[in-house]
Each structure stands twice: as structure tokens, then as C-alpha cells.
Amino acid sequence: MALCLDEIDNDYWNALENGVKAPELKGDLPLRLKHITSPWTALDIIRTLSIIAGPSLSDSGLNVFIENHPGGPYMSNILNQSGAKLIFEWSGPSKRSTLADGYPPDILYDQFPHRAFIPVGTRSHLYLIGLELMDGVSWEVAVSKPKFKLTRPQSWKLWLQSKHHQWLEREVARIEDEVAGIVKKRPTAKIVFPRV
């Protein structure tokens, strides 16, 4: 029997209302985390090593899913809906929490079965270790074609280069190399407030 999305959503909300008790996270650190996003947002995060938190101060941070959570799979229908999965390693403290607890930074808050959450202001314990593009997704979606601007002669050269039949493939290869070089270093990522 197939499970429809409405049943999953009902199960999810029933679980939250009944206070699902997920097992505490135990075992060896680091934890592997996945963040689902678009390829162009993933590229921006990789290039800046900064995750810009959402505008809601009560819930401003990074939503992630803990790989192989001891409670089982997450009750979320977004796990396979975007084009990229950023993979992080978490080496810091974690705790079970609800929204009412508040969110001091540099702690991973386990809100299984909904999500795990790392709040804005976090500057340590979060390492970028990988990226997976989902099936059928390519870096082509993150490539911007140069625009021809009559008043900017430099744009003419870039625009002409983009007309070459292998230009897009070269740009995709350049992005792949750039991403691989950054991820190989296992850099620390930080979660910052939105720019105003």
C-alpha cells in the first residue's frame, strides 16, 4: 500500500502533538549533517563559507538533517526536493530542544523528527565536507551568461567567449574544480545574520 503525502503530513503533526521522544544523540562525534538547497545557493555558501540565516529571529539559522539519526528517518517531504545537498560535519555539542528553549549559538539542536537546527551566530564546530547534486541536476543552472553592454568594452570579450560551443561545459568544469578545491580543505562554515 502506497503512503500518500497527506498521510505523512498527518503522521508528522500527530507525532509532534503527542511529543515524539526521539532517542538522544549518542556516540562518536563528528555527526554528518545534510542541508538541502538550490545549486546556486550551495555555490554561494561554498564560496563565502557563510550561511545567511532567515529573517525570523526566533528561528534564524540553518536547518539540517542528521545522517543516520538513531530515531530513524525524518518526517519531512523536502529531503529530495531541491537540487543540492551540502554535507557538513558537526564536532560540537548537541541537545534535544523545542522552539520554546531558545537557541544560543554553537550548539546543534535536535528537533527530530522535524529537523536539526544550528542557530545564527554559530562560528565553530561546523565543517563543510561535501556536496551532492541530485539526479538530473548540473552546475549549468548556476552559470550566468555574460551580457553584452555597449558602454563596457570588457563585457564584449566575455559575451563573445560565451558564444563558443564549449563555453558552458568549460564554465561547469571550472565550477566543479572550484567546489572540489574548497571542500577538500574541510573549511569551517559560519551562520550569519542577513545583510541589511
Rank of each mutant, 00 (worst) to 15 (best):
residue 100 A to S: 14
residue 105 P to S: 02
residue 76 S to E: 07
residue 35 H to G: 03
residue 51 I to Q: 00
residue 143 V to C: 04
residue 54 G to Q: 05
residue 20 V to Q: 09
residue 59 D to I: 00
residue 119 P to E: 06
residue 153 P to L: 13
residue 108 L to M: 01
residue 117 F to K: 00
residue 150 L to R: 14
residue 28 D to S: 15
residue 149 K to P: 07
residue 39 P to S: 15
residue 30 P to V: 02
residue 146 P to H: 06
residue 40 W to T: 15
residue 24 E to M: 12
residue 152 R to N: 15
residue 154 Q to R: 10
residue 66 I to W: 06
residue 81 Q to Y: 10
residue 86 L to F: 03
residue 141 V to I: 13
residue 113 P to W: 00
residue 145 K to Q: 12
residue 43 L to Y: 07
residue 130 G to H: 01
residue 30 P to S: 07
residue 153 P to Q: 09
residue 21 K to A: 08
residue 74 Y to L: 01
residue 89 E to K: 08
residue 141 V to C: 11
residue 76 S to N: 11
residue 120 V to G: 06
residue 30 P to K: 04
residue 106 D to G: 03
residue 122 T to I: 01
residue 84 A to P: 04
residue 131 L to I: 12
residue 139 W to F: 09
residue 83 G to T: 08
residue 67 E to T: 05
residue 14 N to M: 12
residue 32 R to A: 12
residue 126 L to M: 08
residue 26 K to R: 13
residue 127 Y to C: 08
residue 84 A to K: 06
residue 54 G to C: 04
residue 63 N to T: 15
residue 57 L to D: 14
residue 105 P to N: 02
residue 45 I to A: 03
residue 101 D to A: 07
residue 118 I to E: 02
residue 59 D to R: 14
residue 132 E to W: 02
residue 42 A to Q: 04
residue 130 G to R: 01
residue 152 R to P: 00
residue 38 S to D: 09
residue 149 K to T: 14
residue 61 G to H: 00
residue 47 R to D: 12
residue 146 P to A: 04
residue 84 A to E: 04
residue 93 P to I: 07
residue 83 G to F: 04
residue 81 Q to T: 10
residue 73 P to L: 08
residue 12 Y to F: 13
residue 17 E to D: 13
residue 94 S to Y: 14
residue 75 M to I: 07
residue 133 L to M: 07
residue 136 G to H: 05
residue 12 Y to Q: 09
residue 16 L to P: 00
residue 29 L to Y: 08
residue 32 R to C: 10
residue 99 L to D: 12
residue 65 F to C: 10
residue 63 N to V: 11
residue 111 Q to T: 08
residue 60 S to G: 01
residue 135 D to N: 13
residue 61 G to T: 01
residue 104 P to D: 05
residue 28 D to T: 14
residue 58 S to H: 11
residue 134 M to I: 11
residue 58 S to V: 10
residue 15 A to Y: 02
residue 141 V to H: 11
residue 127 Y to K: 14
residue 131 L to Q: 08
residue 130 G to F: 01
residue 84 A to T: 04
residue 53 A to C: 05
residue 37 T to S: 08
residue 85 K to D: 15
residue 60 S to F: 00
residue 68 N to I: 00
residue 112 F to S: 01
residue 81 Q to D: 11
residue 11 D to Y: 09
residue 54 G to S: 10
residue 140 E to N: 11
